[in-house]
């Protein structure tokens, strides 16, 4: 197995010379069929023709008009609109349009609410006393800013050369626990947006201390 691997050249079309081609020895190795290119909308990720069923049609249209005017004409010109109705009756189409508009408004409202929630959510950096002069630092609420907690923990572990892990706290929510008192440094990192710790408004970050107060 290992030998074969080492021999086979990187091009897949040629690589199947060492096994698959025995059944079809007469013909030269066939070229793989190239994949079909599909244009996906960058707003809703659907193929362009399905944008109209997504929840962001107006935005999709704007984007397409800007980026690919020729394709825009193909999908949203007058005649394209009339042909696509096809066998559906006019009333049914009107109903569909109405529902699409409703769906869009709903999606917008949802996005708004999500954004608001994101802006309002807090990140707390908590210094927790362990024994005597030893501390751990728990960071809570990073996931609201779509930060991958595992990656962030890894980065912090590397940065401070200490242990850092993702654990569930008493409320069953994930938080990052870093060993040692590094709360100020983490605050600075969040302010600068180091590595994966991006996109946290610094006004939403607060440092709290747990248990006995210590002189800074």
């Amino acid at each position: 197995m290992g030998k074969k691997r080492a021999q086979s050249p990187p091009r897949p079309a040629v690589a199947e010379g060492d096994g698959a081609s025995t059944s079809q020895t007469v013909e030269p190795p066939k070229e793989p069929r190239p994949p079909q290119k599909v244009f996906y909308c960058e707003v809703c990720s659907f193929p362009l023709e399905y944008c109209e069923f997504g929840s962001s049609l107006t935005k999709c249209k704007e984007w397409l008009k800007e980026e690919h005017p020729d394709l825009y004409d193909k999908y949203y010109s007058e005649e394209a609109l009339t042909t696509k109705i096809g066998t559906l009756s006019l009333e049914a189409q009107a109903k569909l349009d109405k529902e699409a508009a409703k769906k869009e408004a709903k999606a917008d409202a949802k996005a708004d609410a999500a954004l608001k929630k994101k802006l309002a959510s807090q990140v707390t950096i908590k210094r927790i006393e362990r024994t005597k002069r030893k501390h751990v630092t728990a960071i809570h609420g990073l996931e609201a800013f779509s930060i991958d907690l595992k990656k962030a923990a890894k980065q912090l572990a590397g940065r401070f050369a200490t242990g850092a892990s993702v654990t569930k706290n008493a409320q069953g929510l994930d938080e990052i626990v870093v060993q040692g008192d590094v709360s100020d440094e983490i605050f600075d990192m969040l302010e600068k947006g180091d590595g994966v710790l991006k996109g946290v408004p610094i006004a939403n970050v607060e440092i709290v201390e747990d248990k006995k107060k210590k002189a800074e």
């Binding site: 086979s8 897949p12 079309a13 199947e16 698959a20 190795p29 066939k30 793989p32 069929r33």
Partner: peptide, 30 residues
């Protein structure tokens, strides 16, 4: 495992109308 992958490849070739070469292009043996 390679042996499982081999079986899988055969199954897929039987279930889909796809040429071995094309499958090889998207899912190289290596």
């Amino acid at each position: 495992k390679q042996s499982v992958q081999r079986n899988l490849r055969a199954d897929i070739l039987a279930q889909w109308a796809i040429e071995p070469e094309t499958l090889e292009a998207v899912w190289p043996k290596k």
